[in-house]
Design a protein around this nucleic acid. Structure first.
Length: 467
RNA sequence: GCGGACGUAGCUCAGUUGGUAGAGCGUCGGAUUGUGGUUCCGAAUGUCGCGGGUUCGAUCCCCGUCGUUCGCCCCA
């Protein structure tokens, strides 16, 4: 096919010529050095075992989301650049996205997150959608950066968003969904914690309590976000750098450190204790506790990177010392829909990545052993059995089983070995004997036991096992 | 974008103070041709990541490059 393109390119348009020369370049090069078999940097190939795990993760995600009444949606992976410029954070868009210009001169981005997309979709049908609106999706997302543990260039993310509820009921439900996902994967509440904070509270702390200006608030917010990752002395030095000399003289650094020490709502500085957001956080934690979610903690240093969060934010943390990290989170973003020129809409949501989740499950040994979808591996015994076995194969499939046949012509032992190494549970033998008698040997490959039955009996046995 | 480590058979890795390489596992075949996962015998497979330099000679030394990985930046 490559050669055909090259040969026929002579009389084509310039565009086609350029394409053809590109193709011929790689074609010639391929003769010198072998093509790489590696997937694109930071992206993954999914062989059946990997895909099976992914299907399991997605399946649990779907089940939980739908259990709370969320409906699945989807959207194109490409979005216009402008969608991200307003609220995502400039650095993320400029340096960490896949951006290109299409043939019509449009600036296109491979979506790095789903929130702007779902906001766009909801804004587009702002008037005709029914609220409360519950939406979820499992999009693949791309970010341009150096891959490291838990962070690849392409990943999939469960996105759950609740639109149209201004009260804490929304936070309560969304965090319940997040918690239910963790429970559904078999994790216990002592393995993770749910950290809560409020952007409004942090703003009040910095504005009203410390008396900072707008720019200082923003910079300090980013610094607080990093607090747990940098040495204490460095945090102090950088905080000092944000404050003016007179602010430092007033002892703002000390007040900051004192305030951030609060590990519970009751430990907040008196001036903040009566703030509206404190009452909200308290109310929310009470509701969550009443729902059996006992692993919630308040954390004033919890910021989350996005600028679009407006109020309560939360994160799920892995408590394992080996993997002590933030896994995923979300919060309230009431101002995003309004960017599309329609009336604002209160929204709470979260996003949960497949890579960090898989790391968590692996760390806590929560990954199930997944079996292939094939119910029966058929071992052909004797000569010319392939053709003679077809009727039986068709019957089994007709009766609802997934049946793979070993058409290699190898001896029975090798065929069984193949079946076992593929992880299929049953082997079924088909030879002259079986075709004459209508009784087939069904071998349980896990136990090694073997029984003779009619096809109907075999089908019901296998179906019973499958349940 | 920055720094460290690594890159030898399908996989995990050893090795050569520079003379073109091995082990285990796996794969394939066999142990009187209808029964695996524990045995025994046998076999195949490497441009020692790629390019360049030094050298009589490089998988080993030097430079570059690509890739993997850990961390930083940043964080969805």
């Amino acid at each position: 096919m490559l050669t055909i393109l090259c040969a026929s390119s002579v009389s084509l348009t310039t565009t086609r010529l350029a394409l053809a020369s590109l193709v011929s370049f790689s074609y010639n090069k391929a003769q010198v050095m072998a093509l790489s078999t590696q997937p694109y940097k930071g992206a993954r190939d999914f062989y059946p075992d990997d895909k099976r795990l992914q299907k399991y993760l997605f399946g649990v995600w779907r089940t939980v989301a739908e259990k709370f009444g969320y409906e699945e949606y989807d959207a194109p992976i490409l979005e216009p650049l402008e969608l991200y410029l307003a609220k995502t954070g400039e650095e993320i868009v400029n340096e960490q996205t896949y951006t290109f210009e299409d043939r019509g001169g449009r600036h296109v981005v491979m979506r790095p997150e789903m929130t702007p997309t779902v906001s766009r979709m909801v804004a587009a049908k702002r008037q005709e959608l029914t609220y409360p609106l519950r939406l979820y999706s499992i999009p693949n997302l791309w970010r341009y950066e150096r891959p490291q543990r838990g962070r690849l260039r392409e990943h999939w993310q469960l996105n759950v968003d609740l639109f149209g509820i201004a009260g804490l009921e929304a936070e309560h439900e969304i965090i319940q969904v997040a918690d239910s996902v963790m429970q559904a994967f078999g994790s216990r509440r002592n393995q993770y914690s749910i950290r809560l904070n409020s952007r409004k509270l942090v703003d009040a702390f910095m504005h009203e309590h410390l008396g900072l200006h707008e720019v200082q608030t923003y910079t300090l917010g980013k610094l607080i976000d990093r607090k747990s990752k940098i040495p204490h002395a460095e945090f102090v030095a950088q905080a000092d750098a944000i404050f003016t000399p007179s602010q430092r003289e007033q002892g703002l650094t000390e007040q900051l450190l004192e305030g951030l020490k609060a590990e519970d709502l009751s430990e907040l500085p008196p001036k903040l204790a009566d703030h509206e957001s404190v009452k909200e956080l308290k109310q929310l934690m009470d509701w969550l506790k009443a729902s059996g979610i006992s692993n919630c903690v308040f954390d004033l240093t919890l910021m989350r990177g996005f600028d679009y969060y407006t109020d309560i934010v939360f994160e799920i943390f892995d408590r394992d010392p080996e993997n002590n990290r933030s896994m995923f989170g979300g919060g309230r973003y009431d101002g995003l829909i309004g960017l599309f020129g329609v009336e604002n809409l209160p929204t709470v949501g979260f996003g949960m990545g497949d890579v960090t989740l898989a790391n968590f499950l692996e760390t806590h040994q929560l990954l199930p052993k997944l079996k292939p979808e094939t119910d029966i591996y058929v071992v052909l015994v004797g000569d010319d059995m392939y053709e003679k076995a077809q009727t039986v194969l068709a019957d089994l499939r007709q009766m609802g089983l997934s049946v793979a046949v070993d058409s290699s012509g190898r001896k029975a032992g090798s065929q069984i070995k193949t079946a076992a190494s593929k992880g299929v549970h049953y082997a079924l033998f088909i030879g002259e004997k079986e075709l004459e008698s209508g009784q087939f040997n069904l071998k349980d490959l896990a136990t090694g036991t073997e029984e003779q039955h009619s096809l109907q009996r075999i089908v019901s046995m296998v179906k019973d096992f499958r349940k």
